[in-house]
Amino acid sequence: MALKDRPEQPAEGRAPRGRPRSEAAERAIIDGVVRLLEDGVPLAELSIERIARTAGVGKATIYRRWEGKEALFVDVLRSVEEEDPPLPGTSVRDDLIAMLEGLRRRGLAKRSSAMLRSVLGQVQSYPQLWQHYQNSVIAARREVLDDVLRRGIERGEIRADLDFDLVGDLVVGPMLVRTVLRPDGPLDEDLAERIVDAVLAGLRPRP
């Protein structure tokens, strides 16, 4: 199913800048989409015209900031999801725990928010929107994880003889199982720490 109201634009993501951006207008647009979603309006029925009317702005104001609804919806998702915590940078273990804790908190937020569950479920029904979310959000988080793992290899905290992508999957996989595949699975406060310690035990260089 395709999303409508998408004008031709030269690049993916935010539209090229014209006038100086108004942070208040941008916030009003995102808040307007959130209100419509909270009212149960499906993504397929969120036209640019309806969003503009709800936000109290003109359609041109939206198109000056986003190339279309895919880019706008990704920013809306960012606004309602838990923010990624800052990495302490004290050790690979501490950084991995911080990353998994962010994933755990997003899982808890999804469980407690019917709107967020609905929107994330709908996003996967729109290939272009899902790909946009993967490219701009998921890929960025994976890049941060890869940087942490590379530092671990350089410092001798992680074995260098393993498939790199597999190492990343081993780190995030258990938390993804709990937050995505097992929606009723326990998300205890110490879960991130227990996962990282269990995985690192198998990733450390052998004597």
Rank of each mutant, 00 (worst) to 15 (best):
M1Q: 12
K4H: 13
P7H: 02
Q9F: 14
A11T: 13
R14M: 13
R14K: 13
R14D: 08
R17V: 11
R21E: 13
E23G: 03
E26S: 15
I30N: 03
I30H: 00
D31I: 01
G32P: 03
V33T: 00
R35W: 08
L36Y: 02
L36G: 00
D39R: 15
G40A: 01
G40M: 05
V41E: 05
V41Q: 09
P42M: 00
S47R: 12
E49S: 14
R50Q: 04
I51N: 01
A52F: 11
R53G: 09
T54H: 08
T54D: 10
G56T: 07
A60G: 15
T61M: 09
T61Y: 03
T61A: 11
Y63K: 04
R64M: 12
R64N: 13
K69Q: 13
E70R: 09
E70T: 11
F73V: 10
V74W: 01
D75T: 14
R78Q: 06
V80C: 00
D84N: 10
D84V: 14
P85I: 12
P85S: 07
P85K: 08
G89H: 05
T90F: 04
T90G: 05
S91F: 08
R93N: 06
D94T: 11
D94I: 09
I97H: 01
M99L: 14
L100Q: 00
G102F: 01
G102E: 01
L103R: 12
R105W: 08
R106L: 09
R111H: 01
S113G: 00
A114I: 11
L116H: 06
S118H: 11
G121L: 06
G121R: 04
V123A: 05
V123W: 03
V123I: 10
V123L: 02
P127L: 08
P127D: 03
L129H: 03
W130S: 14
H132G: 04
H132P: 11
Q134H: 11
Q134S: 09
S136L: 12
V137I: 15
A139R: 15
A139E: 12
A140M: 07
R141V: 07
R142T: 13
R142V: 13
D147Y: 12
V148E: 02
G152Y: 09
I153G: 01
I153A: 00
E154N: 09
E154M: 06
R155T: 13
E157N: 03
A160V: 08
L162H: 07
D165E: 12
V167L: 06
G168L: 06
D169V: 12
D169F: 14
V172E: 11
G173V: 14
P174F: 05
M175H: 02
L176C: 03
V177C: 04
V177E: 10
V180Y: 13
L181K: 07
R182G: 10
D184R: 12
G185M: 09
L187P: 04
L187Y: 05
D188W: 10
E189C: 02
E189L: 05
D190V: 10
L191R: 05
A192N: 06
V196R: 00
V196D: 01
V199E: 08
V199F: 00
L200Y: 06
A201Q: 14
G202A: 05
R206C: 09
P207E: 07
